[in-house]
Design a protein around this nucleic acid. Sequence first.
RNA 1: ACACCCGUAGCUCAGCUGGUUAGAGCGCUACCUUGACAUGGUAGAGGUCGAUGGUUCGAGUCCAUUCGGGUGUACCA
Length: 953
Amino acid sequence: MEKTYNPQSIEQSLYQTWEEKGYFKPHGDESKGNYCIMIPPPNVTGSLHMGHAFQDTIMDTLTRYQRMKGKNTLWQVGTDHAGIATQMLVERKLEAEEGKSRHDLGRDAFMDKVWEWKNQSGGTITSQLRRMGASVDWDRERFTMDDGLSDAVQEVFVRLYDDELIYRGKRLVNWDPKLHTAISDLEVENKEKQGHMWHFRYPLANGALTADGKDYLEIATTRPETMLGDSAVAVHPDDERYQSLIGKFIMLPIVNRLIPIVADDYVDMDFGTGCVKITPAHDFNDYEVGKRHQLPMYNIMTMNADIRSVAEVVNTDGTANNELDGSLPERYAGMERFAARKAIVEELDTLGLLGKIDPHSLKVPYGDRSGVVIEPLLTDQWYVAVAPMAKTAIEAVENGAIKFVPQQYENMYFSWMRDIQDWCISRQLWWGHRIPAWYDEAGKVYVGRNEAEVRAKHKLADSVVLQQDNDVLDTWFSSALWTFSTLGWPQQTPELKMFHPTDVLVTGFDIIFFWVARMIMMTMHFIKNEDGTPQVPFKTVYVTGLIRDEQGQKMSKSKGNVLDPLDMIDGIDLESLVTKRTGNMMQPQLAAKIEKSTRKEFAEGIEAHGTDALRFTLAAMASTGRDINWDMKRLDGYRSFCNKLWNASRYVLMNTEEQDCGQNGGDMELSLADRWIIGLFNQTVQTFDEHMEAYRFDLAANTLYEFTWNQFCDWYLELTKPVLQNGSEAQMRGTRHTLVTVLEQLLRLMHPIMPYITETIWTRVKPLAGVEGETLMLAAFPEYQADKVDTQAMADLEWVKQVIVAVRNIRAELNIAPSKPLNALLRSVSAEDQARIEANQPFFKTLAKLESMTILADGETAPMSTTQLVGNMELLIPMAGLIDVAAEMARIDKQLEKLSLDAKRIEGKLSNEGFVAKAPAVVIDKERAKLAEFTRDMDKLNEQKAELAKLEA
RNA sequence: ACACCCGUAGCUCAGCUGGUUAGAGCGCUACCUUGACAUGGUAGAGGUCGAUGGUUCGAGUCCAUUCGGGUGUACCA
C-alpha cells in the first residue's frame, strides 16, 4: 500500500466496479427480511448540494448496513421533473439563445425542447450521486414523468375523481402573476414588509348617518387598489356605533357602486374604526365573508395582475353573474397593480376621501419560485379534498405506524394536518403531467385515462369535439406517489410486495408538508395491507436539519457561501472557487463582496479530502434533527482519521503479509492485549448497533473513531510490538492472527460509513484473515459475540495501561526523556497486581521503558522518589539528587487538596440522612467505595509527604 | 399570537428514561522526527452547564418564570 492515503486514486474506479458487478441490486433472498429506502427524488435541474450529500450519506450508510446484515435491500433512485423549476430554466435558456418565448414555439415544440434538455443535462445530479458512493440500484432508476409513473399519476387522478376527492371549481387561489399559474399555499412565502395603512372615507348612501352624525364610514386598507373590487363594508353585529347602519348602503367612490353594509363576527370591533372593506375576489378572509353573505365577487385583475377594463362578476357558487355591472373606470384599465395603488390613493385624496396614512408592517406573500408578490385571484382550478385522507394519515402517526425521528416533528405534522386546506393541484404550465380531463364544446368535463376511454364511458359520438384540459398537475402530486409508483403500481408487482411499506424516509424538515404528509395521505388511500387496512408508505421518517455555513448562515448563491460537496471531495483552487461562486449570478452587484470573502476564507482554496472523509464528517455531525454548522476543520480531522486507518493497516500488513497468521492452523497463544482488543471490539460492535438502531449516526461515528484511534492504534498496535519482536512462535502467530482478524472485522464495521477506504484495505487483508468473498460490500456485518468478551483480560489490561500512563506522567512532569530507561519500585502490591506485573513485563518494558520493577518489602524504606498511585499500588521512581523536594511536595499537596474536596463532598452526601434513607443501595455503595478510595489515596499521599520530609532531613 | 428547537470549554457540539470527579473534536501550551502514521506521538491547561425560583436524598438532565438566538404555522382589515 502507498505510504499516504490518497482517496482520489481509489474511489471512482471502485464505484464503477461495484456498479458493474451489480452489487447494488437486491439479492432477492428474503430470509433475513427486506429493506427499502426511497430516495427523495432530486430535481432533474439540480446539482448536488450539501443537503443532498448529507442525506445521501445517511441513506447509503443505512442501506449498506442492512445489506451487510443480509437483508434483501433496495435503495430506489430517481429524479423529479420539478415542473416550475425546469420549465423556468428551459424558458430562460430559450430566451437567451434564441430570443424566443415558449409561446413562440408552441406547446409541443416547447415540450420537445424540455425533453431534449432533460436528456442532455438531467444526469448531472445522478452522476454526482455516484461520487458520494451511493449504492442505489441504477437499473431501477425512475423519473416522475416516465411512462410508468405517468400511468400511476393518471390512475390516481381518475380514481380520486371517481371517489369525489378531486373536484374542479372557481375559487380564490394564490396566483403568481409572473409565472401565470396558480400555486399552493405552501409555495407562498410570507415576508415581513414595511407598508402603509391607508384610511379612506366611504360615503354612506341615501343620506344615512352614523351614530355620531357622520355621513361616511372610515375604513382602512393596506392594498388600496383592491377597493375597485369591494362588494360590501362589514361591521361587527354587536358594534353599537354601526348597528343602525346594517343593511344600509355605501356608495363606493371611484367606481360608484352601491354596496351593502353587512354584519359579521370576523370584524374586530377594537381594531381601527371597526369597519372593514370586503373584497371577496382579492382577499382570502373577505372571500369567506363574501360567501357567508352571498356577496358578488368582482374580479378586477388580469392574469398579469393588471387592472381589467371590466370586472368579472362571479356569484358565490362560482357561476358568472351577468346581471351586475362590472364596469371599472377607463383610466385604470390595464394599469399595473402597484401603479393603480398609487393612482387610487391620489384620486381619493383629490376627492377628499383620504384619511390618515400610517406606517404599517405587514406580511406580504411572495412566490417561492418567481419572487413576485402573489395575488389572490379567482380562477378555475382542480383541487384534492384532502380532509378525509388527512384523517387516516394523522392516525397513522398517532398510533405509531409511522414514527418521526426526532419525534418533535410530529407536532408540526399534526398541527398542519389538523387544519389542512384543500390542495390546489392544477398548474398553468406545460411541463408536467397533463390533467386527464376533457371538455366538450359546452364546457362539460369528462375525466378518464385517455380520450378513447372517456368517449366510451360517456358514450360520446365521434362528432363531439373534445378538448383536453390545458393544465398540468403540481409536481408534488406525482412525488406523493413515489413509494409505490416506483415499485410498479398500479400493477401488483413482486417488488411492491417485497419492499412496500418502505423502511425509512430520510428527508429535510422543509418538505414535511410538501411531500411527506401528502405521500402518507396518497399511499394510505391507494395501498392496502393484506387485511385491507391502509398501508403506510414508510415506517420511520428521519428528519434532517439544514447544513449551514461556518457562521450559521443558510447557504445560498446570493450570499456566495455555498459549498459544493464535490469540492470537498476533489478539492478546488481559489481562482476556480471564486469563479464558481461569482459566475452566473442573479444579482451581479454582489460579486465583489463574495469574491472578497471567498479569498479571505479560502486563501489556499479547498484541499481534496475524499468521499469517505466527507461521509464520515456528515455522519459524525448528524445529531438529531438540528441544523448543522459546517466545519471545515472537522472535515480535515476526519481525513486525518482516514489516514490513520490507512497507516494502521499498513502496519498490520507489514507485520502479517507473507507471515504465518494462523490461517493454516498451528499453535496460537493470545496475549493479554489480544484478548483485550477482541473483547473491546465486540463491545464496540454492540454499541455501534445500538446507535444505528436509534438513528444516532453521530454517536455511531464517534464509537468507530474512538475505538480505531484511541484503542486500536494508540494502544493495541503498540502492544503488539513487543510480542512481534520477542514473542514465541505461538505468541507471534496469535498476535498476527488477532491483528488481521480484528482489522478485517473493523473494516466491515466501518464500511457502511466509509465504503471506499475500507474496501480497498479489505482486499489486502482478507486472505490473511482467511476470509472469502469478492467484495466487502456484501460481506456479513460483524455480530456482537458475548463469549469473546473476556472481562478479566479487559480489567487486567486496563490496569496495565494505568501503570504505563503513570510512568508517562512522571516523565512528563519531571521532564524525563521518553527514551530514558527507568527503574520502578512498587509498594502495596496485591497478589493480583503482582501476577499482572509478572505476566506483562514486555509491555512495561516497551511502552513505559521500565527497565525493572522491584516490589518493596513491607516496611522497607524507599529512596528519594516521585510517586504515582495506580489503584491500591504505589509506583515509585527513585530520583535521588534529581528531585526538587519542594516541587514534589507542592504536587502532592495539590492532589491532596483536590482529593479532600471530593472526599468532603461525598462525606456530606453520606451523612445526609435523606440520602442514606432514600437513595438506592447501589448508589450508596458506590459513594462509600469512592470515599474509601479517596481516603486511602490521601493516606498514601500523606505518608509520601512524611517520607520526603524525613529523607530530606 | 401559538407551537417547537437551541443556549454546556476559545470554537463546533455530545451528555439516552435525574445518581462516578460534566465529555469529544478542533484550537491552545510544553515536550518528542521512537521503523505504521508529523494528516503523527506523549503530557497538560481550559467549564459556577443563559438567569432565577421550585420538585427531589440528589438537577446540566424534571417543573415554573425569565432573558437571548432560531424555526414553523396563523395572522387585524
